[in-house]
């Protein structure tokens, strides 16, 4: 199995935008996962704790959900927000 990636590396460059995107996702991902270590939380709770806009939390949290790092818990008492917790 050859390393074909080395061949393409020489032909193309990675744009700064892509690099920035990875960086920001990884940062937010780390923060969210760390935030949830303490127990399940709703999106507004995460948003308040991390001081991130709720929509940014939603987008990234749902991406983590898609990639199975997070699970959906119960809904809160007001039937408004779901809790999210780390997947064991």
């Amino acid at each position: 199995m050859g390393k074909t990636v080395d061949i393409i590396k020489e032909k193309r460059v990675v744009s700064q935008e892509v690099k920035d995107k990875i960086k920001s996702f990884n940062k937010i991902k780390k923060e969210i996962l760390k935030c949830l270590e303490a127990g399940q939380k709703t999106i507004p709770q995460i948003s308040a704790e991390l001081n991130l806009p709720a929509e940014t939390v939603t987008y990234n949290l749902m991406t983590l959900l898609k990639y199975n790092q997070i699970a959906v818990g119960e809904i809160d008492d007001m039937d408004e927000y779901y809790y999210y917790n780390l997947k064991q």
Partner: peptide
């Protein structure tokens, strides 16, 4: 996983 608001995940 549920129908939610993209802004804050509210039902």
């Amino acid at each position: 996983n549920n129908v939610l608001r993209p802004k804050d995940g509210k039902v």
